[in-house]
Computed example of a mutant assay.
Amino acid sequence: MQPRAARLPTRALIHVRTPTSEFDATIGNVSADGARLLGVPDDMLEVGDTLEIVVGNYHHLAEVRWHIDDTCGLAFNTSLSALQIATILGSQHIH
C-alpha cells in the first residue's frame, strides 16, 4: 500500500465547472492527488461526478470521491506539479 500524500491546509478560493453548472468554492486542503472542497452548494455534486477546478491559468480535472453536506473529496485525474500546488496555496481570490 502506497503512503498517503501530504495534505497541505489552505483556504484558497476557486471556481468550479461541471457539465451542467458553475460555482465558487474553497479548497480546505490539497495534495498532488486530490483536495477537499468546502462550500459546495446543495445538490450541485454527486459521488462520481467529473468537474474542473480553475485557479489562475490552471484548470484541473477531478472526480468527486465522497460528499457530505457542503464538503467533498476530490481525486485529480492527473497529479499536480509542485508549481500547480504552489499556485493553489497562493490563491487569494477567484479567477
Rank of each mutant, 00 (worst) to 15 (best):
M1F: 00
Q2A: 12
R4S: 13
A5V: 05
A5N: 12
A6W: 03
R7G: 06
R7E: 04
L8E: 10
P9R: 11
P9D: 05
R11L: 09
L13T: 15
L13A: 15
I14D: 02
H15R: 13
H15A: 09
H15Y: 00
V16G: 05
S21Y: 02
E22S: 15
D24T: 15
T26L: 12
T26Q: 04
T26E: 06
I27V: 15
G28T: 00
G28R: 01
V30L: 04
V30S: 01
S31V: 04
G34F: 09
L38R: 15
G39M: 03
G39T: 09
V40D: 03
V40I: 15
P41K: 10
P41R: 08
P41W: 10
P41C: 09
D43W: 06
L45C: 05
L45T: 04
E46L: 13
G48A: 11
D49R: 11
L51Y: 06
L51A: 05
E52M: 13
E52A: 12
E52D: 05
N57M: 05
H60M: 15
L61R: 15
A62Q: 07
A62T: 06
E63C: 02
W66E: 04
W66Y: 13
W66F: 12
W66T: 10
H67W: 11
I68P: 00
D69M: 02
D70E: 09
D70C: 03
D70Y: 08
T71V: 11
C72Y: 00
C72H: 01
C72W: 00
C72R: 00
G73T: 11
A75G: 06
A75H: 08
F76T: 10
N77L: 03
L80R: 07
S81H: 09
S81K: 09
A82Y: 01
Q84A: 10
Q84H: 01
I85T: 04
I85F: 09
A86R: 10
A86C: 01
T87L: 09
I88F: 12
L89N: 02
G90A: 13
G90C: 02
S91N: 07
S91W: 02
S91G: 03
Q92S: 03
H93E: 07
H93Q: 07
I94T: 07
H95T: 02
H95Q: 07
